[in-house]
Simulated scan of single mutants.
Amino acid sequence: MANSNLAGVLNPRRRHLAAGAVLMVFLLLLPLGISSVTILNILILTLLYAGLSQAWNILGGYCGQISLGNALYFGIGAYTSTLLLTHLGASPWFGMVFGGSLAAALALLIGWPLFRLKGHYFVIATIVIAEGALLLFQSWPWVGGTLGIYIPFLGDSWVMLQFQTAKLPFYYVALGYAAILWLVTYTIDGGRLGHYWRAVKDNADAAQSLGVGIFASKMQAVAISAFFTGVGGAFYAQFVSYIDPESVMNFQISLLMTLPAVLGGLGTLWGPIVGAAVLIPISELTRSYIGGSGQGLDLIFYGSIIMVIALVKPEGIVGLWADIKRRRILSRTPLASRKVAP
């Protein structure tokens, strides 16, 4: 019985779940003592990009398909929700689900030919398609073209997800979004899909020889990733109340989804959250305090951070933390007990 209890305490998945619950309680209480609108905006964007990076990590981190075109799905979600609201009066909550579903359907359509490409050819193809979609939306009058679309204010309402002055509701929606993505990733990480996708990422040929469907795994991953990216885009549109192709389909958005996972740790449960907590505040604070004169400085700054992490610890901050913990445990373990019996 004692051994069973000890195994339960030491179970890594239970530790992750407990840590997630503690973090959730902390984040639920965090904004209650914050009066600064700027800080609240940064927290909302940090949570949003933690979720978006988690969605990207499902495809790029677990399945090994590095995409630099996820801004396409973000934009599809944003435009779908906005057009449904402005033309049909549909609730943004419906727009999130419909926009996410449309993004997932588009991802499957694009993935059908693209997943036959490998390595850098696949990465380049995702960039080309996303940039092509950006040019299309810029020249398409029905979606506002380069002028974009303003979302009309219909009054404070949870149903229409509109609040003129209060930012706190948006914070809790963003927190819910990030929490759902974390739970989805937690389920995938310990389930059959996670094992299959890691096998595809590590050695596709070996995985296929063991009966893993390579193409099916990639299509599953891209559909889940695109759906939640589209949902994030729909939320962002409501949060800022205005969208245009440059604001929701720009290449920089794809980078901002990718970099937190790379910095925090690819294919890990906590990597995107840790990375977003570091990178997004840096981006927003440099933009706020330096302004137009410092345009792009945030990218240079956290690009430098990522290069340092890549050189020192390619597994990211989460991998670095795991190494520190391992060394501490070894330092407390008697030398005799470290010897392995012949």
Rank of each mutant, 00 (worst) to 15 (best):
G191C: 14
S247T: 12
A261N: 04
I282F: 01
T165D: 14
L40C: 12
L114W: 02
T46I: 05
G265E: 06
I253V: 12
I305K: 12
S101F: 11
Q295P: 12
P31N: 13
R14W: 06
N57F: 04
G319S: 06
G265C: 10
G75C: 01
I58D: 02
T165N: 15
V312I: 08
L168S: 11
A199E: 10
N57H: 08
I324G: 07
R287I: 15
F26T: 15
L108P: 04
D298A: 11
D244H: 09
A21L: 07
G111P: 09
G119S: 11
A125H: 07
G75T: 02
V200S: 05
T268D: 08
W197L: 07
H16M: 15
G271H: 04
V222R: 00
Y150G: 15
G232Q: 05
W140A: 15
L263K: 12
I151Y: 05
L109G: 14
F74N: 03
F122H: 07
G95W: 03
N57T: 10
Q162E: 10
A261D: 03
I76Y: 02
G316T: 05
I305T: 12
L10H: 05
V22H: 04
T46G: 00
G75S: 04
T187V: 15
I282C: 03
S217E: 07
A223E: 02
G316D: 01
L45Y: 09
I180C: 09
L285R: 06
L17N: 09
F163V: 08
H195Q: 12
H120I: 13
G20A: 12
L263R: 14
V231M: 02
T268I: 10
F115C: 05
W93F: 05
R198L: 06
A237H: 00
R198E: 09
S157W: 00
Y171H: 06
L193N: 00
N70K: 13
V231E: 03
G95D: 03
A277H: 04
L68Y: 14
L311W: 14
A204G: 06
L279H: 08
I282G: 03
G191E: 14
L210R: 12
G230L: 00
V123I: 15
Y177E: 00
L136F: 14
Q252A: 13
S293F: 04
I39F: 01
G275P: 04
G294E: 05
L85A: 14
S241P: 07
S337L: 13
K118T: 07
F228W: 03
L168N: 10
L256C: 08
G51K: 00
L27M: 13
A133W: 01
T333E: 13
P113L: 01
Q138K: 15
